[in-house]
Design a protein around this nucleic acid. Structure first.
Lengths: 218, 218
DNA sequence: GTCTATAATGAGATAGAC
DNA sequence: GTCTATCTCATTATAGAC
């Protein structure tokens, strides 16, 4: 798990890595089998030898990407820890994950928009039902305790992943809009771990005896 | 401006509309000239007659998309209105824009990731410098008044566009994760106008004599 | 301006030698 | 297992009739 640099091991794994890189950067339609072969410094035909077709290879890579993403989030969503700590961990973990593979969020979401069926066989819904049910219980508790405003689990979860994932999805745009070079961009991302956590907690917490968030509708 | 349904007017405009739809849904690589021709119910050759190449047509559509987006945001960012009102307008306007063209955000950001140069000739940076400078002044004022926590204009702006744009970019994913059909999805989006506004304002506002947001670093 | 036909190239996939 | 050569089909683009 520690030394995966040279990685001249088996060809199959080499291809997977190359495919991951190329697919996640260019998407299914933009990626050429030749690109993947070049990246792996092997012949196109070998790709077909190991993984019958472009489609098959793609499905594998896509599935892996989703698995890694959910695998990192799952233990936190199921952990029995205080709400604010859970939020902090969720933010930090997802950001770290995206730092390690910056194109993954865009990759997953873009391919799902292209063809929502790519994910249908996995039963994402069941998993999220647990995530959200879990979170909902914690939110209700804290609400009754008077420490946070009333908010649905779906809303809060969506707020968090929006704040965390968008800066990666919009990397190229943000760099130009904010005038950031690579270094500046990554510094901004690191700063966001604390910033987003604080912003989210501030957004739902009640300090003294505040009635119910900001005066607004129900 | 009211009757653009039949729209048998000039062919050029018809092609533009079709191209906008196809490109924004499938991206540059995923879109076929045949798809656009089909959408417009005309011949492929006509596309080349009006717009020399796929590249040229794409650049036009992409530019239009960016223009429409910035065009809607600009007046709000430059308006001399109270901070909280500005936030509310920004959220509502951007959501409306995305409702009208749900694929546009993904389209712009995905194509920029594929090739950041597509936007380089426009000088986005200058525009955002004004946006952010403007916002920064308002934030400093409110901070001195003691009504909000200390926050950089870039951070707040990024928070807002993240919260607003992500649900559109992740539409397909969210629908499956949250178990939403089309109607449920759009209802959720509409609810978000108020929800995001409230959440953002809550996230930065100081109610009574709170010192500086949540106890945390500088 | 709009169409049909066709050229020219690109890209996925397979056959077969080594 | 890995390569070269080749097949096949899809796609962009153009030529030329109407």
């Amino acid at each position: 798990m520690s030394k995966r640099v040279g990685m001249d091991q088996n060809t199959e794994e080499l291809i997977r890595q190359s495919a991951r890189k190329v697919f996640s950067e260019k998407g299914f339609s933009g990626a050429r089998m030749q690109d993947i072969a070049d990246e792996a410094k092997i012949n196109r035909a070998l790709l077909h030898y190991y993984f019958r077709s472009k489609e098959k290879l793609f499905e594998l890579i896509f599935d892996e990407a989703v698995t890694r993403f959910l695998g990192a989030v799952q233990p936190i969503m199921f952990a029995r820890i205080p709400l604010f700590e859970k939020i902090e961990k969720l933010v930090a973990t997802e950001i770290d994950l995206c730092v390690a593979e910056p194109c993954n969020a865009m990759f997953i979401l873009h391919e799902m928009m292209r063809n929502p069926a790519v994910l249908e066989r996995r039963n994402i819904r069941k998993l999220y039902e647990s995530f959200l049910g879990n979170l909902s219980v914690a939110l209700t508790e804290e609400y009754k305790r008077g420490s946070i405003v009333k908010i649905e689990a779906e809303s809060l979860f969506l707020h968090i992943i929006s704040l965390v994932l968008f800066p990666f999805i919009g990397k190229a745009y943000l760099q130009q809009a904010f005038g950031l070079d690579e270094e500046g961009y990554w510094r901004m991302i690191q700063k966001r771990k604390k910033e987003v956590t604080r912003f989210v907690i501030n957004g739902i917490r009640i300090l003294e005896g505040r009635p119910e968030g900001v005066s607004s509708d129900s």
